[in-house]
Amino acid sequence: MNRFAQAAVARNPAAVQLLGLCPLLAVSNTVANALGLAIASTVVLTGSAVLVSAIRKLVPEDVRLPCFVLVIATFTTLVNLAMEAYAFDLYQRIALFVQIIVTNCMILARIEQVASKEGLGRTLLDALGTSAGFAAAILVLGAAREALTLGFPLAALPPGAFLVAGLLLAGVNVLGARRRRAREGATAARLPRA
């Protein structure tokens, strides 16, 4: 599996690592809001990761975390300004959650684990994969909640976010366990009989 798929599926930030859950739960009430936050997170994560990777040899070990947070905060503020200038309706709905992208541990984790150690190519693939994984999770949750709202109004409210996200995570775990069992079964079948 290449780095992109690994970051997006096997290490999916939301479904497997359970990172970035605050925006995931708060902004997934409609598909449009979810898409807005997914794009904002992608720009912040990819921009910060590429920049950190480019300057990684200039950043002293002792002050690397303040430097990373400064880079993430700068990209977050740029995205926030861009939304306020060019997508004002969306900005009014999700601005608060765009601002707190800066505290999203999913982003700091990718920068500390990958961008601060690896070259531009690998960093870019990892950042795009992680972003795609997060986008997929928040869009699925957004679509599920928006569809369920028709017969089940609670789905659009905060408790609905926990219920729907919990059921989706349970589904992901069941699928993961089934695949693991299938793989183990296949390996066992290939073993020669003693």
């Binding site: 002293p60 700068t74 740029l78 300004l81 306020e84 200038a85």
Partner: peptide
């Protein structure tokens, strides 16, 4: 450490000032 942090802070400040200036009119109109 101090030099690295100061340089990065200056760069971040410059980038933000430039972009805030660029978007100022659109933000005010919105």
């Amino acid at each position: 450490n101090v030099a690295a942090l100061a340089a990065l802070t200056l760069l971040a400040g410059a980038a933000l000032a430039w972009f805030a200036d660029l978007t100022e009119d659109d933000v005010a109109r919105n």
